[in-house]
Design a protein around this nucleic acid. Structure first.
Length: 712
DNA sequence: TACTTTGTCCTTTTT
DNA sequence: GGACAAAGTA
């Protein structure tokens, strides 16, 4: 039950024990950020500087929030219940539930996840006869979410042009639809909570008086609205403690605004910016590689990680002939590491995009190496679970048209597209929900839901869920389906999840208990359920670089370091995009404790066709003396000869066709465009043309007779 | 109405 | 290669 302040380095200690002033902590990767944050909270509370109820601590992920609670719990005996610790969305939800009426919401309001939101937008577009070619639902969704995350309502969008005017009209209609149906999307949780406090001075003052210490994790990832939300609690006595790392900002594409760090420093007149630069995770060479790479970014607050650990091993670099070759090599290395005693769960294979996992999975599978892929379809996002949840939602909130449409005819009960259309017309006319106007065959469905509601009234959550999956006909339906067994298993798992959901008595600020079904549905929406089957088992860890943030591994593989992939082709056109890619690479490198592997492949199957990529510029930006090439460095010069000795190869590159002295797949040098790789060719002799991928300079067709191309 | 086949489109994504 | 939606068929 000790804080172990003596184990902190001077910077950590000064951050933890900072007197009453606002603070910005620039915490580098592996510098003990979470430790500082949690020790600070424990130090404040244990020292009697603040009551637990005076703490507001915000993170981005449920995982980080749980981790924080656990660590704080281990440092003190005080019940951390009184503290507000959670994600932005979780805390906003808590606030909206407590003041639903003031916020203009039904007390059992439901939360739409991104999938649900998209479905709602599609439905709206249909009902308003929107041309989906001109206004793709996806883009409407982005538009709406971007505006909400800027704190901008439809009425506040400047009608720049006809297009914007129309899109804004749809934004307004979408919000009306949500309001009518009693549902709230993710960004709405934030915005609604913000508006509630901004308009209700009494409420705002209440919370501003209450929260004396506001601590923010991953501050570089906050968007503009989140920052404004945080500022609502500002008062004479409130102190802000924001921890972040601008070099690890990898979510600007989602609206994160790194500028919040500078704004905070200025607006709160932060006297001391504390830099945590000592890294306790990685060996020297790995850190040097990361530092050298990130030094290429111009937009930085400036920070250099160091370690007292030794240099360690060099960074190992591998060039594969193909993605399959790369995968085969990974498998071999993993096997050899495992033989030498490295635990599989301490090895991470990272990639830029999810599509890359397949090839590696295939290779691992064929060699019988257990692995776990993160970030796939999550438990509460599975179709069968969503169906079951839709029934539950209709019990809690009959006006939820989203839920109605999802299951009115699932399992099929003869309510076809025609009947649905008629219902929608009637509902529109009456200004009511689909459930209200349900007649004909739909009336039977309505009765089913009503019966379920009355029969499960007051029953324990577990029995409610059991009743729903039995009486809805879901189980019956999946029994007859070819691959229904897994789905039935998942539905049974949902019953277990409901049974385990004994969340401490839900009491809101006004002392009313919140209905357990609503609490469970909220839980399902906010925590999509990262836990997977076979969670704690010994397995190789595979994930995108994005989802690796905050994690660490003894051994890390960063794969697919190729121009167009990493950095991604859709990011290299803008300098900011490229810098974000570089930060992403920085995050990837700094996940490694002892050993780091980097790899790229000459050819790769993408979207069903072979692509020829040149090595990533990031490989050039790491000093060569830190690296050890396992294959000859950028062995582009060697003519491409398939190696048949490798048994595991599943596909062979296309046979080389000679065109004007060049071959597809060959690496070339152009006097103006620099290095490139030939990806296509046509014609013969003097008419021969080749298509060359020059990486960030793009893909060009060149006439061999004219262009001064040289074999590189 | 419900199941099968063909045509389009591809980043990353904590909540 | 694979997800998803529109078009085609029983």
């Amino acid at each position: 039950m000790s804080l172990h302040l003596e184990h902190l380095n001077p910077e950590q200690l000064s951050a933890v024990t900072l007197p009453d002033e606002h603070a910005l902590i620039l915490a580098g990767a592996g510098s003990g950020k979470t430790r500082v944050l949690t020790t600070r909270i424990a130090w404040l509370v244990k020292g009697g500087r603040v009551a637990p109820a005076g703490i507001l601590a915000v993170t981005f992920t449920n995982k980080a929030a749980r981790e924080m609670l656990t660590r704080i719990g281990a440092m003190m005996t005080v019940n951390p219940r009184g503290m507000w610790i959670g994600t932005f969305h979780g805390l906003c939800n808590r606030m909206l539930r407590a003041h639903a009426r003031e916020a203009g919401l039904p007390s059992a309001f439901q939360i739409l996840d991104s999938q649900d939101q998209l479905a709602a937008i599609k439905r709206l577009s249909k009902s308003m006869n929107v041309d989906e070619e001109r206004f793709p639902p996806r883009e409407l969704q982005y538009f709406i979410n971007d505006r909400k995350e800027e704190g901008v309502r439809a009425r506040d969008v400047p009608p720049a042009d006809e297009n914007t005017r129309r899109v804004t009209e749809l934004y307004a209609a979408y919000d009306e639809q949500c309001q009518r149906e009693g549902v709230v999307d993710f960004p709405e949780l934030l915005l609604r909570s913000y508006e509630l406090l901004a308009r209700n001075e009494i409420l705002r003052e209440h919370y501003a008086r209450r929260f004396r210490h506001i601590l923010v994790d991953e501050f570089q990832d906050t968007n503009r609205l989140q920052y404004r939300w945080l500022k609502l609690f500002r008062s004479q006595d409130a102190q802000y403690f924001c921890v972040g790392d601008d070099d690890q900002s990898i979510y600007t594409f989602r609206g994160a605004h790194v500028g919040n760090m500078g704004d905070f420093e200025r607006e709160f007149k932060v006297k001391h910016v504390i830099r945590l630069e000592q890294n306790y995770r990685s060996h020297g060479n790995i850190l040097d590689a990361a530092n050298a790479l990130i030094a290429n970014n111009r937009n930085r607050l400036g920070k250099n990680l160091w370690t007292s650990a030794g240099k360690g091993e060099p960074v190992r670099v591998f060039e594969g002939e193909s993605d399959n070759d790369e995968a085969r090599w990974i498998v071999e290395e993993v096997q050899s590491l495992a033989r030498d005693g490295t635990r599989l769960s301490h090895i991470g294979v990272l990639y830029r995009s999810n599509a890359q996992s397949r090839v590696v999975e295939h290779a691992l599978f064929s060699q019988g190496i257990p692995y776990r892929v993160y970030g796939g379809l999550r438990f509460f996002e599975r179709a069968e679970i969503k169906h079951a949840l839709a029934y539950l939602r209709l019990i809690a909130m009959p006006d939820d048209d989203n839920a109605f449409l999802r299951v009115a005819n699932f399992p099929p009960r003869g309510i076809g597209a025609r009947s649905i259309e008629q219902l929608q017309d009637a509902a529109k006319l009456a200004g009511a929900s689909l459930m209200k106007v349900a007649d004909g065959k739909a009336a039977a469905f309505k009765r089913l839901i009503e019966d379920l509601r009355s029969q499960t009234q007051g029953l324990p959550l577990k029995e409610v869920v059991e009743a729903v999956i039995a009486k809805s006909g879901l189980i019956e339906h999946y029994k007859n389906e070819r691959e229904g067994a897994d789905r039935i298993e998942n539905l049974e798992e949902l019953v277990n999840a409901a049974a385990a959901f004994t969340e401490e008595e839900r009491v809101n600020e006004s002392g009313e208990t919140i209905d357990p079904l609503t609490a469970f549905l909220t839980h399902a929406a906010l925590e999509a359920g990262e836990h997977q089957a076979g969670d704690g088992q010994e397995a190789l860890q595979m994930m995108t670089v994005h989802s690796a943030k905050g994690l660490e591994f003894d051994v890390v593989f960063i794969t697919g370091l190729e121009e167009g992939l990493f950095p991604h082709e859709q990011s290299v056109t803008e300098p900011e995009g490229l810098e974000e890619e570089r930060r992403l690479a920085y995050v990837a490198i700094t996940r490694a404790r002892h050993r780091l592997y980097l790899s790229h492949a000459q050819t790769r199957m993408l979207h069903g066709q072979t692509r020829y990529n040149i090595p990533s510029r990031f490989l050039e930006e790491i000093p060569q003396e830190l690296m050890k090439w396992l294959t000859p460095r950028f062995s582009r010069q060697k003519p491409f000869t398939p190696d048949f000795s490798r048994q595991t190869r599943t596909t062979l590159p296309r046979p080389a066709r000679d065109v004007g002295g060049f071959r597809i797949g060959q690496n070339v040098m152009h006097p103006k465009f620099g290095p490139g790789v030939i990806i296509d060719a046509e014609g013969h002799g003097n008419d021969a043309r080749v298509q060359v991928n020059f990486g960030n300079l793009g893909v060009k067709w060149l006439a061999v007779a004219v262009a001064k191309l040289q074999a590189a």
